[in-house]
């Protein structure tokens, strides 16, 4: 499906602002097919905003952001870039799964309906077939027994696993995770990380904004440190965690790492 060195995401000089506030100040980052790219950084550093730019939930105001061989938000035609219509945005997002910090499961649907929703309403798959597929995806995240429960009847960890299944049901080429475990009680974090590890092992291309340093070290192919709307440094997780090249990175890591993790990374 993906050639090994195909670039799924290629950002150069990406800028974005909310009114006067500059959020992204020229982000350069590439993600190759099959890679797990973890992004860390202090809150307000723009890492989540960048993730949302990748699937067009936030507009890129300057620079170039190519995702799945398309310039996000624009199509080059007749020597001009034409802004996408809502339909073109929708078609683009079909190939990209997104998992939110606060799950955002459809509150009026059961777990199974949440997973079947995209295939039925976006891909036009017949409902009975979508139901079978949805059940397979729920089994994969270990929630087949909870298929008929509504989001409010599930724990946070279960909700997030349903959200992952919902994204996977669209057969995406790229998965985006926006702090997927930040809203979870500590004892529920591992069940979500386990699902993500399985996904990484299967070769899914993933961009993961996270505070789980241990996950980044173990699963990530690359680790990127964001601060003040730019990429401060990027490297192999073990190397970057053991020998951060910048003072900013060092300060951030020492503030988030627990003592035993710091030992482990040395």
């Amino acid at each position: 499906m993906n050639t090994p060195d195909k670039q799924v995401v290629r950002a150069s000089g990406v800028r974005m602002s909310y009114g006067e506030v500059q959020v992204l100040n020229g982000v350069d980052l590439t993600v190759a097919a099959g890679e797990v790219s973890c992004v860390i950084g202090p809150s307000g550093s723009g890492k989540s905003t960048f993730l949302r730019c990748i699937n067009g939930l936030e507009p890129v105001l300057d620079g170039s952001l190519r995702v799945l061989d398309q310039e996000v938000g624009h199509t080059l035609r007749g020597g001009r870039y034409h802004p996408w219509t809502p339909k073109e945005f929708a078609a683009f997002r079909r190939n990209i799964g997104m998992v939110f910090q606060r799950f955002n499961l459809f509150a009026h649907h059961s777990a199974l309906e949440n997973v079947a929703c995209g295939p039925v309403h976006v891909l036009g798959i017949p409902a009975d077939r979508a139901r079978v597929l949805a059940m397979e995806h729920l089994e994969r995240v270990g929630l087949a027994d909870h298929a008929h429960k509504r989001p409010h009847q599930l724990s946070g960890g279960q909700q997030q696993r349903v959200a992952i299944a919902r994204a996977l049901a669209m057969n995406p080429e790229l998965m985006l995770f926006d702090e997927p475990t930040s809203a979870l009680d500590p004892e529920l974090v591992d069940e979500v990380l386990e699902v993500m590890k399985g996904l990484a092992a299967e070769g899914m291309t993933m961009v993961v904004v996270t505070h789980e340093i241990a996950f980044a070290r173990e699963v990530g192919d690359w680790l990127t440190f964001f601060a003040d709307g730019v990429v401060v440094e990027r490297g192999r997780p073990r190397e970057l965690l053991a020998n951060p090249g910048h003072e900013r990175t060092r300060a951030f890591l020492s503030s988030v790492l627990h003592p035993q993790e710091r030992q482990a990374s040395q």
């Binding site: 699937n55 939930l57 809502p86 339909k87 945005f89 929708a90 078609a91 683009f92 997002r93 079909r94 990209i96 799964g97 997104m98 939110f100 606060r102 955002n104 499961l105 459809f106 509150a107 929703c117 995209g118 309403h121 976006v122 959200a163 919902r166 994204a167 669209m170």
Partner: peptide, 23 residues
């Protein structure tokens, strides 16, 4: 209705009209 529902619908690839009707 929480804005997260809209974002999730868009992320799945729904158009604004479909998001309104279905979600």
């Amino acid at each position: 209705v929480d804005n997260g529902q809209t974002e999730a619908a868009y992320a799945l690839g729904m158009t604004p009209a479909k998001r309104m009707r279905v979600i």
